[in-house]
């Protein structure tokens, strides 16, 4: 086996990780800034999430007597899962280092692995509030995974391939021309999935202060210090990666020029962050029993995307 492509791949893996780790807190910062502007406040600087993470990394952790190693392991597993997930998607000029038919399955199931540990960690505290959040997270993810896969099925049909890099890759401009309506439905549905999977308004309010209504925030209530930093970083990176899947579909431009591609990609994610911020500022979170309707709606959108694809194809 030739050593050079392997080294190249290892290098690519680290490039991917550094891009994700470098830019993902910024994504959160931009959303917060947009929300502050809408509320007529100056708001924290866009780099505030970096400062928060740096602060948390320097703190010690407090543990409950009730908890076991699952509680301590969950932040590590969820961070590692998101880092592995980042390897299957292309980031601007950098191709995905891990590409194979069926990599989308790995992507979804490694996120499920993280979710399993997150939910278990919440149950591990013995706190009923955390159990409540865990139960909701588990329920919502059933529906959002369904919608996510419905989108993947449509994309796979369009690209005639089941590798994520190909599904959101070179065939997209072509698909926009022939299957425009289907892709439009996919984009709308995927955007809802993005909001739901990353616990944004209207599914979950990351800034809420009432434990009874929280989903994601209540699950990390007992985590502190490094553990909390891992979890927050993982959440930010996950949001960034989901944006990274959506952006190449929305901006189907392939210039072939690496710098332009990267600028387009970063500009796209920035635009998406602003869009998420606008959505969050312009609507309230849904009542908990209405969330499932939203997710089923997202599934329905994706389903019609599938119907359109099959109809035209």
């Amino acid at each position: 086996m030739d050593i050079k492509p392997m080294l190249m791949n290892v290098f690519l893996v680290f490039v991917h990780w550094s891009i994700v780790l470098l830019f993902s807190p910024l994504f959160i910062g931009v959303i917060a800034k947009v929300k502050a502007i809408f509320a007529g406040k100056a708001g924290p600087p866009v780099f505030q999430p970096y400062f928060d993470l740096a602060k948390l990394f320097r703190k010690h952790s407090v543990y409950s007597r009730t908890t076991t190693w699952v509680f301590r392991g969950a932040p590590i597993v969820s961070f590692a899962a998101v880092l592995v997930l980042s390897l299957v998607i292309p980031l601007g000029m950098f191709k995905a280092p891990v590409q194979f038919p069926g990599d989308l399955l790995l992507a979804v199931y490694i996120l499920s692995l993280a979710r399993f540990f997150m939910i278990s960690a919440a149950m591990d505290t013995g706190l009923s509030l955390e159990g409540m959040g865990a139960s909701r997270e588990a329920f919502f993810s059933c529906l959002s995974e369904l919608a996510l896969f419905m989108n993947f099925i449509t994309l796979a049909l369009l690209a005639h391939n089941i590798s994520l890099s190909r599904m959101i890759g070179a065939d997209i401009p072509m698909s926009w021309r022939t299957f425009g309506p289907a892709l439009l439905l996919v984009v709308a549905s995927f955007f809802i999935v993005l909001l739901a999977e990353n616990c944004r308004i209207p599914v979950d309010d990351p800034d809420t202060h009432l434990e009874l209504t929280m989903v994601h925030e209540v699950m990390i209530l007992e985590h502190s210090g490094v553990d909390l930093a891992y979890m927050l970083y993982a959440a930010a990176a996950k949001l960034f990666i989901f944006a990274g899947i959506l952006v190449p579909i929305i901006i189907p431009v392939h210039t072939g020029h690496p710098v332009t591609e990267s600028i387009l990609f970063l500009g796209g994610t920035l635009g998406l962050a602003i869009l998420v911020g606008i959505v969050e500022s312009s609507m309230a979170r849904l009542r908990l029993n209405r969330v499932r309707n939203l997710l089923l709606f997202s599934f329905a959108l994706a389903f019609f995307g599938f119907v359109v694809t099959k109809w035209r194809g």
């Binding site: 278990s120 588990a138 369904l146």
Partner: peptide, 26 residues
């Protein structure tokens, strides 16, 4: 495919429930 996805997600709910209530907490 969709039903396999749903089975996987529901199995996750089910086994976090089992593991969480039987082995974790107080």
């Amino acid at each position: 495919i969709l039903s396999l996805v749903l089975m996987g997600a529901l199995a996750l709910v089910c086994f976090t429930k089992v593991y969480g209530t039987v082995f974790l907490g107080e």
